[in-house]
Design a binder for these strands. Sequence first.
RNA 1: GUCCCCGUAGCUCAGCGGAUAGAGCGUUGGACUCCGGAUCCAAAGGUCGGGGGUUCAAAUCCCCCCGGGGACGCCA
Length: 569
Amino acid sequence: MIRQQLQESIREAILRAQQAGDLPPGEVPQVELETPRQAEHGDFASNVALVLARSMSLPPRRVAEAIARHLRLPPEKVERVEIAGPGFLNFFLSPSWLQEVVRVVLEKGERYGRWDVGRGIRVHVEYVSANPTGPLHVGTARNGAIGDCIANLLDALGFEVFREYYLNDYGAQVLALARSVACRYAELFGRSLPFPEDGYRGEYVVEIARKIAERDGPRWLDAPEEERDAYFREFALAEIVGDIRRTLEAFGIRFDGWFSEAGLYARSDFQKTLELLRARGALYEEGGALWFRATAFGDERDRVVIRSDGTPTYLGGDIAYRRSIYERGFQRLINVLGIDHQGQVRSLKAAVQAMGYDPETLEVILYQHVLFRRGGESVRMSRRAGEIVTLQDLLETVGADAARYFLVMTNPSTPLEFDLDLAVKQSSENPVYYVQYAHARICSILREASKHPVGREFVVAHPGDPHVHLNEARDLDLSTLTHETERALMRKLADFPDVVFTAGMRREPHRLCAFAQELATAFHVFYTQCRVLTDDPELTGARLALVDATRVVLRKTLQLIGVSAPERM
RNA sequence: GUCCCCGUAGCUCAGCGGAUAGAGCGUUGGACUCCGGAUCCAAAGGUCGGGGGUUCAAAUCCCCCCGGGGACGCCA
């Protein structure tokens, strides 16, 4: 990859300059390469001379000159190096090095942009994990979009990724759900039961009650309460989890595991966790409750893990869950949570440390909430008030592609305003369509090529297969790709691996959207200025290769974001 | 009160300590007899919330203040 090669060359040049006595000895800092805003400043620029000038107490430009003198970059890779401004080293790439990128993309295909920095490291990514007491609410949509995209990125970095949904299917809230269903069930038979104080009022509760009534008739009306609660709880959970799973699939998310909180108690994982903490002196009793000595591990206060009524707290279950993940052999835990859970982070890290694991291996990604707007007013959504705006609603109005793209488009730490009216009304102007359009346009060119007298030499169309493939690019002469817009497009293709790396390592999926848009723009600009299918066989073959390489990278980028890459729109 | 996040163009948001702060939408005006006009080109639009500091260089790092959101439970 170009950036790494340049960084290494600069580093070697500094070392050689030091050996030759042109620069004083000293540690060589990490060489940073940036992409200048202006084309006159080259394809890459380095400020390394400015950084070194300080420790070497030499004028920056003189340092830059010494480095430049010792650079050994072959002319087929770098056309020239300039020293500019206060002491920047500006690199101008040769067309042949960029043209080589096209070949690399086509040879690597789907593997272009993959890294192996994560090889052998098992990463557990937990996201969504919404309470199974009702349909998925739009608020969790950002969690899903961000979590899934980060999992995709980690996979691209070579980590062994496991995606899991933690189901809070235990405790008072699911009991309240069971009783809410029971109440609606009784109403169907003209009876009445007291509606639980913390009950669920959504229409879906009535639906579940109706299903039970259809299946079992009135036989639960006079059943013992405990028996009825247990049955209604299991039934309601199965219905709701099934619904959640279907909605997530429509959203493009599929988990490798669904972890039941109730299972932690059934398998005595919870007890084992308490024993572990107790053995390490991290538990004590007070006021009839069992406390975790969190302050000993950096938390602001100690935390209750078992209430005085004997029931475990949410945190207690959470700690046991974390332990189960480490027990299963994962080395890194990533948890995607809404900003309202920020208070839990320190407690969780304290618990991880108390159990003897490195708290650095637990990483919590906090994202700011989405403010949904409709008709210029913010939409207040409260499940318990029964006014549900579900993820399913969002998918039906704006579609999965637009929803995912939009929710991932901004930095997780920035609040996001999602105007539902706008998303519906102007869906054709949504940036996702702009990117998808570039992809569809390329596919159209390839289809067209198979009918073109010159172009058809370079493509293969299989009968019955809608895809038109490019022939081997190995023997193509790409040296005709010299137009300014071709150069800009190749530059973008060359950036892709770096974008994947940065987005993945920094857990900033929005960088993919920015890149997708820039790549699409570079393609559209190229398209309006250069004709792909011409009567010149060399030019046509080279441009088909460029366009096909663009298709590969666009498709890969959209795939990482979690959006489809349509061949026609 | 303590802690976390945010404040950049009319709106929604990018911006890695670097050179003249960007994109989309919106506004105004343009562009193929030809591979998809869901496209392209151009213009207008900014005291980067305010004030100090560090640095050769600050939207970016540090401190204070202002504004918005959130967290500080034997809730989940």
